[in-house]
Structures are given as structure tokens and as C-alpha cells.
Lab assay of single mutants.
Amino acid sequence: VTLFVALYDYEARTEDDLSFHKGSKFQILNSSEGDWWEARSLTTGETGYIPSNYVAPV
């Protein structure tokens, strides 16, 4: 499992996005959609889309 960590805070703009804070960790579920990845937050357990340029591999 590849884990990613948030580099910045992000406020969701749609109900499909995940809001998160810098330092939040994610499991990436689908990275084939270009700049928006489907991810599960390891902090909240919620699933949604995150901007790929806001995260980096742990």
C-alpha cells in the first residue's frame, strides 16, 4: 500500500472532494483520473477526491 501525506491544507469545493489538513495521510484508491485522485483518509476513514499536487509519498 502506497501512503501519501498532505503538503498543504485543502478545503473541499464539491461533495465528492475531501477536506484535509497538512500532515494528513491517505491511501490512494485510484490515481488514473489525472490530477484528482480517489483516496481514503487514514485520519477520518472518509473516501473522496484529492488534488494530487497537494500530496507526496510518505
Rank of each mutant, 00 (worst) to 15 (best):
G23T: 02
T43D: 14
S19I: 02
L7T: 04
G48L: 04
D35A: 11
S52L: 04
N53H: 12
Y10C: 04
E38H: 14
V1E: 13
V5H: 05
E15S: 13
G34F: 09
D35R: 08
D17I: 12
Y8L: 08
R40D: 01
E11A: 10
A6D: 00
T47M: 09
A12G: 11
G45H: 06
T47L: 08
S32M: 12
E33T: 12
E15C: 14
S24Q: 15
P57M: 09
Y54M: 10
G45N: 08
T14F: 15
S24W: 15
S41P: 01
V58Y: 13
A6W: 02
G23A: 03
A6F: 01
E46T: 07
S41H: 11
T47H: 08
F26W: 07
T2E: 11
K22C: 07
L7P: 00
Y54N: 03
V1K: 12
F20M: 05
S31Q: 13
N53L: 09
W37A: 02
E38W: 15
I28T: 01
V58G: 05
K25G: 05
S19G: 07
D35S: 10
H21I: 13
S52Q: 07
A39R: 01
F4R: 02
I50R: 00
F26H: 00
T43C: 12
R40F: 13
G45M: 07
L7K: 05
T47A: 06
D9G: 06
R40H: 08
S19D: 04
L42S: 04
P51C: 09
P57C: 06
Y10A: 01
K25H: 12
A56G: 08
N30Y: 07
A12N: 05
E11G: 05
T44Q: 03
G45S: 05
Y54R: 06
S19K: 04
S52N: 06
D16N: 15
D16W: 15
E15H: 12
Q27F: 14
R13Q: 14
E33C: 14
T2M: 13
T14A: 12
F26V: 03
E38I: 15
A39G: 05
W36A: 05
S31K: 13
W36V: 07
D9N: 08
T47Y: 08
E38C: 15
G48T: 01
T43K: 09
I50C: 04
W36C: 08
N30E: 07
G23C: 07
G23L: 03
L3P: 05
T47V: 15
T47N: 05
E11C: 14
S24N: 14
S31V: 11
F20G: 00
E11N: 09
S19A: 06
D35T: 10
A39S: 02
R13T: 13
P51E: 02
A6Y: 02
D16T: 14
S19N: 06
R13F: 08
S52W: 09
L29E: 05
Q27P: 00
Y49F: 13
S31Y: 13
V1H: 13
L7R: 03
L18Q: 03
S24V: 10
L42F: 07
E11L: 10
S32T: 12
F4S: 02
K22S: 07
R40W: 09
I50Q: 01
T47C: 10
F26C: 03
S52M: 09
V1R: 11
I50Y: 00
F26K: 00
S24A: 14
V58W: 14
V5N: 02
V58P: 04
T2C: 15
Y54G: 05
K22P: 03
V1Q: 13
A56C: 09
E33N: 15
S19C: 06
F20Y: 01
V5G: 02
S24F: 11
T43G: 08
R13H: 10
N30D: 12
F20N: 00
S41E: 10
G45A: 05
Q27H: 12
E11T: 13
R40P: 00
H21G: 09
S31L: 10
Y54K: 06
N53A: 14
G23D: 05
I50H: 01
D35V: 10
Q27D: 07
R40E: 06
D35C: 14
F4G: 03
A6K: 01
R13G: 08
P57A: 10
T14D: 11
N53T: 11
D35M: 12
G34V: 12
V5D: 02
A12P: 04
S31D: 13
N30C: 09
D17W: 11
G45F: 06
T43H: 11
E15K: 13
L18G: 00
V55S: 01
F26D: 00
Y10D: 00
S52D: 01
T43V: 11
I28S: 01
V55Y: 01
E33A: 14
N30W: 07
S32F: 10
A56K: 10
S32D: 11
A56L: 08
S19E: 04
L29I: 11
T14G: 15
F4N: 01
V5E: 09
V1S: 12
W36R: 14
D17Q: 15
Y8V: 06
